[in-house]
Design a protein around this nucleic acid. Structure first.
Lengths: 345, 345
DNA sequence: CGGGTTGACCAAAGCGATTTGAGGCCTTTT
DNA sequence: AAAAGGCCTCAAATCGCTTTGGTCAACCCG
């Protein structure tokens, strides 16, 4: 059923029908109601592609998610981020076009989405320290919003980020205040912007107490349960073992907890854990008292906000960029406690 | 840059250029090479929407993922499933259109995708026991593939599923063979097809040994870490507590493990756990010896296979439906052991 | 040498919407 | 009663591509 057929059923011209559906004022209210009712009854809906072609608006937003085929990992925060963003898109009548590409092929994916005109804007996921994508997107004059932050030397652009440096500085300070001195950092891949900032926060908190950081207590890599377990186990079985862990993701923290219990120690008593918690829907950090003491920020809310900003850039261009740096909560849970003097007993 | 402009640069007609890019035989190889090189140089790519309109093919596949706004959970297997499917789409030149809708609004989403012609086919996620979506899709004559199975009374349709009944029957048998008699089932929501089949497998294995199932040892609900923890804790603190748990997801099993260690028991010694493992990329079940004994089937591979089947239905219609039921591995890990006679000591 | 093939290319007609500019009807004003 | 002005509606152009149905020249063969 196309517009022509549909308008013939109604005995109206395509123009009038289109205007009625589009909500334009040049059509009598009675007529509009007639048209809307008939559309519902006959199940008519304008063809998306034809409408896009005519208006020049794709009514779709692109998300490019990298999947490292060598190390096979899909970042689990995508699901929640996209749930948040997708909700906003749906309300505004936008589609969400997902492109799954191998790491390193992202530039090509962006270029293609832009030149084929299949999206009106893009979300940039997981910016790296030296990320070429942002410059490319600025060149292409396609609206975009970054989840996180990339290089800041270029022209300003819109982003939503959490204050990773501050969050991990505060978390480290908390552990220091509890008397811990051997604090391990299990971080994400430090070529990623967020991980780099978290490391800086951790290092500067230590430096603030005149402590040097110890490379043997620092891990940087994919934030999987396995990696958390392996790294923690290695550190705990070394001499002069850590009494506390600062971890970049809840999943990784679960691996740390398993390592701690594996060797017969107690989380929150013998070993403290502080983790970052993205508030993923399927991995809640306890209902009553949090399981883990955590720096907490909802990635779903970030998805929602990124989508809102992007849509506003699309509907009214030439706005100044929106840059939001969210403070994350530091919530106390059951995984931290004071460093007891007699720990090796 | 559109086709007209681009073909003028080359001094050729739009027809020839389009044919050259489309790989049609009516164009001299030299000319084709010329066109391809120029396209690369000038960054010309046909407008997707216009091409779709002309051919009638959207070159896109729709995925509708439900998000229950009340209970706020996004199924974490989506990320991996979509990574698998997206990879196949990308190679075939298809886009992946994601629609995030509130539970119950799925029918509307499907109807819309079909009538606006924005996709050539659909993947159905998470079929329920009495799922109206499949009948609707058959009515609309839009190709689709179901991940899992829905009602089987209607016309046959394509699906990829694991043999959930058999997997959980075997897992239950294993625990029975190890001497366990009080075996708890922590299942997904049993209005879902997969969970219902797993329950049947569990119940029939018990019945095979003349055992009745005990409602107080059965949980059905969202497969979150919290739910696993809460349900296990409740069961373990009751009288005549279970000695083994059969769990429907690794995340939930992690919650069970936490509950077991919380009350000072040992996983694999005092309490056995068998879980289903979707082989999510960020939640590997150990590298060497599996952490959990598990029924194992890759959801990413399922995504890939569903995509392949769907694309083949789209490119050559009127094929008979493809129905695949995958056997899942039963891998032994460190979380199971014999039921010791003196257990309450 | 001429009719029939074949090869390489092109003009123009869609695909299904939106939107401009023009026209028809009815009410209001002088 | 005629002119002006509103309010609706319409025909046709447009978006950028694909594809049908040619045209034209070169080639082949009896």
């Amino acid at each position: 059923m196309n517009l022509k057929e549909f308008s013939e059923i109604l005995g109206l011209s395509p123009t009038t029908v289109s205007r009625a559906l589009g909500g334009y004022p040049e059509v009598k209210e009675d007529t509009r109601k007639l048209v809307l009712d008939a559309a519902r009854e006959h199940g008519y809906r304008p063809n998306r592609r034809a409408a896009s072609l005519a208006t020049g608006r794709a009514m779709a937003i692109g998300h490019v998610i990298p999947t490292a085929l060598n190390h096979e990992m899909v970042n689990p925060v995508f699901a929640d981020f996209i749930a948040g963003a997708g909700d906003v898109y749906a309300r505004a009548g936008y589609d969400l076009v997902l492109s799954v590409v191998e790491d390193g092929d992202e530039l090509r994916a962006y270029r293609q989405m832009a030149s084929t005109g299949s999206v009106d804007g893009l979300i940039v996921h997981g910016p790296r320290l030296d990320d070429p994508r942002i410059a490319l997107l600025q060149d292409m004059h396609l609206p975009f919003v970054v989840h996180g932050r990339g290089p800041e030397d270029s022209h300003p652009y819109s982003f939503v980020d959490v204050d990773n440096n501050r969050a991990f500085r505060r978390a480290t300070d908390l552990l220091l205040d509890l008397g811990h001195r051997r604090i391990a950092l299990l971080n994400g891949n430090e070529t990623m912007d967020f991980a780099s900032r978290r490391r800086d926060g951790y290092v500067s908190a230590l430096a603030g107490r005149g402590l040097a950081h110890d490379d043997t207590l620092m891990f940087s890599g994919e934030m999987s349960e396995q990696n958390g377990h392996a790294a923690a186990l290695r550190m705990l079985s070394g001499a002069d073992r850590p009494t506390a862990f600062l971890v970049s993701s809840l999943i990784m923290a679960i691996g740390v907890r398993r390592a701690v219990t594996d060797i017969g120690l107690n989380v929150g008593k013998d070993v403290s854990i502080v983790t970052h918690d993205d508030m993923l829907s399927y991995l809640g950090n306890g209902t009553d008292v949090p399981i883990f003491t955590a720096t907490r920020s909802s990635v779903r809310a970030a998805g929602r906000r990124c989508a809102e900003i992007l849509l506003s850039h699309i509907t009214t261009p030439d706005q100044p960029p929106v840059q939001e740096i969210w403070e994350s909560d530091l919530v106390l849970g059951a995984s931290t406690g004071p460093n007891l003097p007699v720990q090796t007993a």
